[in-house]
Design a protein around this nucleic acid. Structure first.
Lengths: 340, 340
DNA sequence: TTGTAGGCGTTATCAC
DNA sequence: GTGATAACGCCTACAA
């Protein structure tokens, strides 16, 4: 019985069988030749001792990166990022890569230490949904050294790198144009917080573009910020109680949408038209159904993972930004006409 | 200029400064003493070369496990598991551990190779939502060797190990009793698939217990299986079209619930009472609001992570199963009376 | 078919 | 304060 406080190593297995460590290695990796007898004895000893190869040691010797791809998201709980992660994993799993994942809690410092920890593990690829306000100049050297670095949902600041984002501006513009087409001229925008957030800016830009195209003046009093349902609800109520209230609302993200829908339901305002950016479960079951600009988070994850694999495969072309299409799904709430 | 195809090592930094590798190591780890001058020069060189410590090498030398905790879930996209993961991460992050995550796709083989890959990385803890039909005898040696192994949502098969689960039976019993209290006697059960799944069995047991307690005979024709919304919808429609249809439905998981809610809405059956296991976003906004037996997935994740930390801290007590409370949230759909 | 020497990047030990 | 040496577990290169 070997010292149970230590994990068995190749050498332990070898000693037990009476061969060299190299022979055991050969059997396990199906490397060089090995006689059937030796093979059987080795496998038996491996089983008996509960030997598990040490991947850290192997990678170090081989000089290879660890076969992991790291993903940094701002919040794990948000189903949007969960679905993104699922998309990433679907793609990398097929290549034998495993997913290393952490949340920055939308905090610059946390993001930095998380990424540092990942880099220290010699990951094979890095996927980042950057936290607000963070920059990524320090990743330049890694990327130049051959580490695929891809940004998701939001582009990097201070680094020309691959990015995969939704059609934020186009989608918002289409959603707001949809409301305008149904006769609305006073349309509120409940956007992400902080207002400097990339997705917020792009979606608000789309909002303004749609207004401009229709000759409707931009009214800043119709714009509010919220990231959680509660704040969004408060914002909508305030807007509806104002002297010249909106007849329609465009909700700029999934959590804000939840708050807007709830607020409209609670106040019984079934006359307010609503289009939400990002789809929600049960959206089709509401009455009226929720008209949304649907994103495809799984596709974002997959596209980003594929960029990583392409880079790993030797693609040295310039940084590219992939835009994942969104689509307007009409379900009723966006087709309500304003009171005349 | 060093060979740019190779990452700089401690030795490279040392050579540049003109000290030994050990000195650099001392500075970086704030280990032994080091003069202010040396320290400054070392840090400058580290910065200049873009040196990053190699954690694999460090761990190997120190003989330490990697500071990661691995989590295996059956499906990444499911928001339930996403929230569980968030709970895990909240707890382990505070201890400087990072999360390694993968999906088994509810497949026994995939789960095994995933766990094998994790073990090869010398993880510090293992959290598993076991795939249907998988067993975990092979983890016994790992656990005995000091690796904390904790199961979530479903207990292990073939291994006495810590587990954290919801109050499945109690919750289902309470939910069904709620329907009975409102006058229902023909209550359908749309459970997880396959029927051998732990949560399915426990919830169905609670369903039967509630019936028995009320003296209502168990009618297998009222029981159906579904894991995705579509199948659940089909099942409900079929039940409602049957000769002696139910007056109430108990939906056994979040995805089935989506399908049941949609089917009831589409068929215009506003008279059917409904209680769902697991809460859903927008549940409160439906009309009537959705009465649910709410689980607390984040709490499940946190509790499991805390078990891991306790074991890491030296807790050698016997395997324990933690039950995370659920609670019935009345919102209307579960309080509908049957037609008399 | 099998074994030996050496080294991957880091740190523990002991010496200066 | 600092350095030389050996060792962690494994694999490559070469030899037998």
């Amino acid at each position: 019985m070997a010292d149970s406080s230590r994990r068995p190593t190749l050498a332990d297995v070898a000693a037990r069988v009476g061969v060299s460590a190299k022979t055991v290695s050969r059997v396990l990796n199906e490397d060089g030749p090995a006689s059937a007898a030796t093979r059987a004895k080795v496998l038996a000893a491996v089983e008996e001792l509960g030997f598990r190869p040490n991947l850290m040691a192997r990678n170090m010797r081989v000089g290879a990166r660890d076969s992991t791809v790291a993903l940094v998201v701002p919040e794990m709980g948000n189903p949007f990022f969960g679905t993104v992660a699922g998309g990433v994993e679907d793609v990398v799993r097929d290549r034998g890569l495993t997913l290393l994942m952490g949340s920055s809690a939308e905090d610059e410092q946390a993001e930095l230490s998380l990424i540092t920890a990942f880099l220290a593990r010699r990951i094979s690829g890095l996927l980042v949904v950057p936290a607000t306000g963070s920059h990524h100049r320090y990743l330049r050297r890694e990327r130049d050294g051959g580490l695929p670095v891809v940004f998701l949902d939001r582009p990097a600041a201070g680094l020309a790198a691959d990015a995969v984002v939704s059609e934020n501006e186009e989608g918002a513009r289409a959603g707001v144009a949809h409301l305008i087409a149904h006769g609305h001229r006073r349309i509120a925008f409940i956007g992400d917080r902080p207002a400097t957030l990339y997705t917020r800016k792009m979606r608000q830009r789309g909002y303004r573009a749609a207004l401009t195209a229709a000759g409707i003046p931009y009214d800043p009093t119709l714009v509010a910020s919220a990231h959680d349902p509660y704040t969004a609800g408060v914002a909508v109520r305030r807007l509806l109680d104002s002297p010249s209230p909106p007849t329609a609302v465009f909700a700029g993200n999934n959590l804000a949408s939840l708050g807007v829908v709830a607020a409209l339901a609670e106040t019984g305002r079934r006359d307010i038209a609503l289009v939400c950016f990002d789809d929600l479960p049960l959206a089709a079951v509401l009455e009226p159904g929720l008209t949304v600009v649907a994103q495809d988070p799984a596709a974002i994850g997959r596209a980003a993972a594929e960029r990583v694999l392409a880079r790993l495969g030797g693609d040295r072309s310039g940084a590219r930004t992939v835009k994942v299409p969104v689509r307007v799904i009409e379900r009723g709430s966006g087709e309500l006409a304003p009171p005349h």
